[in-house]
């Protein structure tokens, strides 16, 4: 494994990004790695942008990645992918959830929702995977499990044992949500195949 790797989870307040990055960190910790993560809470709850940097490796100093230093970007909202591309390494992975969440300017009809997001991303990166995580979450039985679906997709690019993932997922949800999230995780993984 390289010294330190970075993952950026990004999306909109309310999508479960902070929980997803907590789970991710616990998986790395359980794998015996040093891990740091950083995010901003507070006003981001109210529909604003939320990002969480997760960096892991043998010894991690900065919880924040610099530009062009992210190995995997997991974008929870389609157009917001475009906000964070400058953080991604040239050979980095980009996972795009195709869900669209409208900010005020689009709701008010002042600007259109950007078209061809995936094509734009592909112009700069070769490893781009679009996924309809919302549909998969619904299929798993809960619209809100988008974050777990995306963790499932992300897990395909990481070298952490599935057993660990399973254990951490079980510890992270209340009893009645475990089955749904296990299924959501599986669907997210299958979508990468």
């Amino acid at each position: 494994m390289k010294e330190v790797q970075g993952i950026l989870l990004a999306g909109v307040g309310g999508q479960g990004i902070l929980l997803a990055s907590d789970i991710l960190c616990r998986v790395f910790m359980a794998s015996g790695l040093d891990v740091k993560k950083s995010e901003v809470h507070g006003m981001a709850q109210r529909g604003g942008c939320v990002t969480s940097h997760v960096r892991f490796g043998r010894k991690v100093h900065s919880p924040l990645a610099k530009k062009k230093d992210i190995d995997i970007l997991v974008s929870f909202e389609k157009m917001d992918t475009l906000r964070y591309l400058e953080y991604v390494k040239d050979e980095g992975q980009v996972i795009i959830n195709m869900e669209e969440i409208y900010p005020p300017a689009i709701n008010l009809g002042e600007s259109p929702y950007p078209e061809d997001v995936t094509e734009t991303v592909r112009r700069y990166f070769s490893e781009v995977t679009p996924i309809d995580a919302k549909a998969l979450a619904a299929r798993a039985g809960n619209n809100r499990a988008v974050n777990t679906v995306l963790l499932g997709s992300l897990s395909c690019f990481l070298n952490c044992s599935l057993l660990l993932w399973r254990k951490v997922l079980e510890d992270s949800f209340p009893e009645k949500l475990i089955a749904v999230n296990r299924e959501a995780f599986r669907l997210g993984r299958d979508a990468m195949k």
């Binding site: 109210r46 529909g47 604003g48 906000r83 900010p103 002042e110």
Partner: peptide, 12 residues
């Protein structure tokens, strides 16, 4: 990567 113009997403 050139700056790509997309609508801002302020908290609401």
């Amino acid at each position: 990567i050139p700056e790509i113009q997309i609508p801002p997403r302020p908290p609401n």
